[in-house]
Structures are given as C-alpha cells and as structure tokens.
C-alpha cells in the first residue's frame, strides 16, 4: 500500500514539477541568448492565467476538439506514472512497459492531430500532416533505442531496466552510447524543439506542433501546454534514469528517497542546460531536412543494436 501511495506521490511530483523544468529551460535559454530572463515560476503563472480565461471554440469544432485536451492530458499523466522518477520498484511500473509508454505518446499525438483537422483550416491540416510524418519517423528510432536497452537488460519494464543498469555498475557499453544519442535526438523531435520545430514561433510556414493547437484557448490550451511540459520532462527523465540511474532510490526509505530526489533534480538541471546549449547552437531545419535528421538518429539506434548483438552477447 505504501508503495502505491508513493507511486501516486511520485506522479503528482512529476506533474507539478514539469512546468518548473520548463521554466528552468526557458530561463537558461534567455541567459544564453543575452536576454532578460523571466522568473522560474513564469510557466505556473501562464497556466494559472490560461485556466482562468474564457474558452473560444471554433464554429466547426466537434466533440473531438473539446475532448482532445483531456485525453492528451490523461495519457501523458499515465505515461508519467510509469516512468521511474525518484524510486524504482514502484508498482505502477508493472502496468505498462516501455512499448506501452510509446503507445500512450502515440495516442496523445493521434488525438492532437485529429483536433488539428477538426477545425477545417489549412493550418490545422498542415500541422497534423507534419506532426504525423515526424512522429512516424521518430517512433521506430525510439523503439529501436529502447529495444537495445530491452535486449541488454532482457526486460521491457522500465523499473527493471533501470535496476539492471544500476546493478551492472560503471561498465562501458558502446551500444548504450549509440542508443542514448538516438534517444536524445528523438526526444528533441518529439517534444518539438529546435532544430525540428520551434516552440517559440508562430511563423506560419514553419509551425508544426503550434499549427495543430492554434485554435485552442483558455483551459483547453492550458491542459495541452501542461501536457507538453510533462512530455519534455518524461523524455529527460528517461534519458537521465535509464542511462545514468545512479542516485535513484532502490529502497522505499526516507533517506534513499531524499537522495533520489536530489539526484534526479541535479540530473534534470544538467540535462536542461544541455538542451539549451543544443537549441542555441542549432538552427531550425527546413521540414524536409527533418527526415535526414531522424534517419541519422535511426542509424545511431541501429548501430547501437548491432553493436549489442555483435559485441556484447558472447557466441
């Protein structure tokens, strides 16, 4: 029972810390680009403002448009619930393994894209079409990276996989390096960051994610923005805890949990800086360069897998 309560608390922590991570990334980015930075709490204020505002629905909008924010938010929270954040061996991890996790994200993407088509404007369709194209190319890379991990740890359960890396100590696995690079590139594409998409732009011809959700306002927009922040955090936690699990709590004792919390906070702060540096030195790509970007990521993941098969399994 304690475990279930802890799992619920961890999920809550995940959900409510996600905007803070967004704030941190935004702030570092401003510093990096010599701009005045907003407060760390700015994302919370934005969300609060959006929740209070009236909602304008487009005339053609059907129930798909109105239901999508809830479905996206629900699917994203459930994804967050199965990712080990502070501690491993929590019971929620058994509900869904990493393939199901990819499935959840695909479900959220499916509905977001439908909502984009629901209004019947060119923007919505454009965003949906591009998002599904990027998603279709990113998903096999993600699964390939994950398969490398799953085959090494012989499990697709995230908690078990993390424990496996933790127990195997500081060994150099070339396959993991390739898989990690692939996963990071996918994370950039899937969360709509530079160079694949730019979350800060509303420039008509380059929008992808923003084009789909252009018609959302008020609380619907708040849910979608929040879900986006949680999704960014999910990918960062995945990279942090699968490949660098050290510090994560293996026992459900107060001491271990505190260490786990501090460890994940430090890892996320660091990864946030990495993301900002990446976003600052890269330029946004033309849409039809994105397949090359993701093709490279696929190659890395494939190399990772083959390295695993050739080098790391004897015989």
């Amino acid at each position: 029972m304690t475990a279930w309560i802890l799992a619920a608390l961890q999920t809550l922590l995940f959900v409510f810390m996600a905007p803070l991570l967004g704030g941190w990334v935004g702030r570092v980015k401003c510093h990096m680009q010599n701009r005045a930075a907003p407060s760390l709490l700015q994302p919370y204020r934005d969300l609060a403002k959006l929740f209070r505002k009236h909602t304008v629905l487009a005339e053609q909008a059907s129930w798909i448009f109105r239901g999508t924010p809830y479905i996206v938010f629900g699917a994203t929270i459930l994804t967050a619930a199965v990712v080990p954040l502070v501690a491993v061996q929590l019971p929620t991890a058994a509900i869904a393994d990493v393939i199901v996790l990819v499935g959840f994200l695909a479900l959220a993407r499916f509905f977001t894209a439908l909502a984009g088509m629901d209004i019947g404007t060119a923007f919505g369709g454009m965003g949906s079409s591009r998002e599904m194209m990027i998603g279709a190319l990113a998903e096999p890379v993600l699964l390939m990276a994950v398969f490398t991990l799953a085959m090494t740890a012989s499990t697709t359960n995230l908690s078990e996989a993390t424990t496996f890396t933790l127990n195997s100590g500081l060994v150099l696995r070339p396959s993991f390096i390739f898989a990690m690079l692939g996963l990071m590139m996918v994370a950039v594409a899937e969360t709509g960051r530079v160079p694949v998409d730019n979350p800060a732009t509303h420039l008509e011809l380059t929008m992808v994610h923003e084009a789909m959700i252009l018609e959302y306002s008020g609380r619907h927009l708040a849910l979608i923005v929040w879900a986006g922040q949680i999704k960014l955090m999910i990918y960062m936690v995945l990279v942090a805890n699968i490949f660098f699990p050290w510090g994560i709590a293996t026992e459900l004792a107060a001491n271990d949990l505190a260490v786990g919390l501090a460890a994940i906070a430090a890892k996320l702060i660091l990864l946030g800086v990495v993301l900002v540096v990446w976003e600052t030195v890269m330029a946004k790509m033309r849409l039809f360069r994105v397949p090359q970007f993701l093709g490279f990521a696929f190659l890395l993941s494939l190399l990772g897998m083959l390295t695993h098969v050739v080098l790391e399994t004897g015989g």
Binding site: A106, F110, M117, S128, M132, M133, G135, E139
Partner: peptide, 18 residues
C-alpha cells in the same frame, strides 16, 4: 504502426472532421 496511425488520422480527419 506509426505510419498506419498517420494514415488513419488522414482518413478520419479528412472524412469525418472539418
């Protein structure tokens, strides 16, 4: 599987939505 999802967003979005 991901391409199938794209295809059915297309089907549903074009036929039933808008």
């Amino acid at each position: 599987a991901a391409l199938a999802a794209a295809c059915f967003v297309k089907v549903y979005g074009v036929a039933f939505l808008g």
